Structure formats: structure tokens, C-alpha cells
Simulated assay, not measured.
Amino acid sequence: MDTLCNATGGWTRLAYLDMSDATQNCPSGFRLYQSGGVRACGRPVTGSASCSSVTFPSNGINYTQICGRVTGYQFGSNDALHTGNGNNHNNLNADYVDGVSLTRGSPRQHVWTFMGGVFESINIPSNCPCTAGSPQINIIPDFIGNNYFCESGNPTSSYYNQFFTADPLWDGKLCRSLEAACCNAPGLPWFHRDYGTASTTDYIELRVCGDEGTNNEDTPFGLAEIYVK
């Protein structure tokens, strides 16, 4: 791998799962979503908050940088970091987000958070922090800081039991109306963490989390691609 995240050479791929390839399967502990040719991996059916997890070992590789991308889809009423449905939104080890969490090692250290918001063009508290007028900009946990992407895939005024496949999340495209700023996040669709001289062999963990049951919301991912150097 040559140039990624404005850094040349030395990258090693730890994870690559592209569910548009029909020969690929979801990791153990994830549920397959399928609709109109879209395939994605989300939480198993549950009536309450949960996270589903898969880890990617470094195989002993020392690294100081992580670069990658994740794309996902909105199912139902994802509400990013909204605190109305639980007490875990400042707890990295719990269902702090409706979306995908990337961490490294144990105890977990935050790498990146991929949030799903509920609407693109209706201003309510469940929208992305980057959406115009969203109060969530004031409740981003310190462990996240600026290391997040957020997007809604819902251009409508409803959400119940809908799988929004026309607008994949965190790809830097189709940020309509109020969430236009969400597509201006630096680097999209690629995230990048540079730890300077602090090297590690930590594994990378990907979790799909939600603070309500899957009948109400989920954020299945369709692509995960992660490199280290």
C-alpha cells in the first residue's frame, strides 16, 4: 500500500470486509441485513441497548498510525449521542453511540467514532453534532473530541422500521440540507490517527452499538478497511 491518509509507504492492512461482495460473511455475533442488493452487518435482534464486537489482531506489528474507512447504513431512529435513552454516553466501554466505535487494546482506547443521526433536514436533538442547530455539539465526550464522523441517511420525515440504503453513511456524500457541514469533515471518508513516537501492537476492535433495541434502531456497516504503520 502506497499513500494513505497523506502518509506514504509502510502501511499494513489489518482488516478488510466489503459486504458488497456476496462471498463475504458478517463476523460472528453480527446479523446480516439485506435489501435491494445492499448487504451490511449489524447487531443481533435485541429489545435493549447492546454492542456487537469483532477484533482485528495486529499480529505483532508495531505501529504509530491508524488509517481506514467504515461505511454503514441507517436503520430506524439512530440518534448519535443523544442522552435521552440511557446513561452510558460517557462510557467508552458501553453503548455510548448509535453507530460504530473503533478502539484499540485493553483497556479500550478510543480511535474513531462513526455516528448515525436521525434526520438530514428536520432539526431535532437526535441529529448529528455536525448538523446545523444540533445541541449534541455540546455533549461530545472528551474521549471522542474531534475524532468522529456523523451522517444521517434519512431524507424523509419518518424513520420507523426503515432501512435507508440509498445514502450510505460516512462516505462524504449526500449530506443534504442541515447536515451539509458533516460532509466537510477533514479526510472523509478516511479517518487517521497519528500517535507520534508512541508505538503499540494493540489489536483494533470494531463495535456496532445502539442504546435502544434493534426494532427501533441499528447502524449496520457495509465496509470496514483498516491499515496501520
Results as ranks from 00 to 15, higher is better:
residue 79 D to Q: 07
residue 141 P to Y: 08
residue 150 C to D: 09
residue 111 V to Y: 10
residue 81 L to T: 02
residue 99 G to E: 08
residue 90 N to E: 10
residue 105 G to V: 03
residue 128 C to L: 08
residue 187 G to C: 00
residue 118 V to D: 00
residue 126 S to A: 09
residue 160 Y to T: 14
residue 171 D to I: 00
residue 153 G to P: 10
residue 177 S to K: 10
residue 106 S to W: 03
residue 89 H to C: 11
residue 127 N to L: 07
residue 138 N to F: 15
residue 184 N to W: 07
residue 178 L to C: 03
residue 75 F to M: 03
residue 89 H to Q: 15
residue 152 S to P: 04
residue 88 N to W: 14
residue 116 G to Q: 04
residue 176 R to H: 11
residue 101 S to P: 10
residue 107 P to F: 05
residue 139 I to F: 10
residue 70 V to K: 08
residue 170 W to V: 06
residue 166 A to H: 03
residue 188 L to A: 11
residue 187 G to N: 07
residue 158 S to V: 15
residue 87 N to T: 15
residue 80 A to N: 05
residue 174 L to T: 13
residue 189 P to A: 02
residue 174 L to I: 11
residue 127 N to R: 05
residue 177 S to T: 10
residue 171 D to A: 06
residue 180 A to T: 14
residue 183 C to K: 01
residue 187 G to L: 01
residue 148 Y to F: 15
residue 73 Y to C: 01
residue 70 V to G: 06
residue 169 L to K: 03
residue 93 N to H: 10
residue 173 K to D: 09
residue 98 D to K: 09
residue 183 C to Q: 00
residue 165 T to F: 04
residue 150 C to A: 00
residue 147 N to Q: 14
residue 180 A to L: 13
residue 173 K to Y: 06
residue 150 C to F: 03
residue 103 T to M: 04
residue 156 T to E: 12
residue 91 N to A: 13
residue 90 N to V: 05
residue 179 E to G: 03
residue 147 N to F: 01
residue 144 I to E: 10
residue 95 D to L: 01
residue 86 G to R: 00
residue 151 E to H: 13
residue 149 F to M: 11
residue 177 S to R: 12
residue 136 Q to E: 15
residue 109 Q to P: 06
residue 136 Q to V: 02
residue 79 D to A: 02
residue 73 Y to N: 02
residue 72 G to E: 06
residue 141 P to C: 09
residue 139 I to L: 09
residue 145 G to A: 05
residue 132 A to D: 00
residue 146 N to P: 02
residue 159 Y to S: 14
residue 76 G to L: 11
residue 109 Q to G: 09
residue 86 G to V: 01
residue 157 S to T: 15
residue 184 N to F: 04
residue 169 L to D: 04
residue 124 I to E: 10
residue 97 V to M: 06
residue 189 P to G: 09
residue 77 S to T: 09
residue 165 T to V: 14
residue 109 Q to N: 08
residue 82 H to R: 14
residue 103 T to A: 00
residue 91 N to E: 12
residue 129 P to H: 02
residue 71 T to S: 12
residue 176 R to G: 06
residue 141 P to T: 11
residue 108 R to S: 14
residue 82 H to E: 15
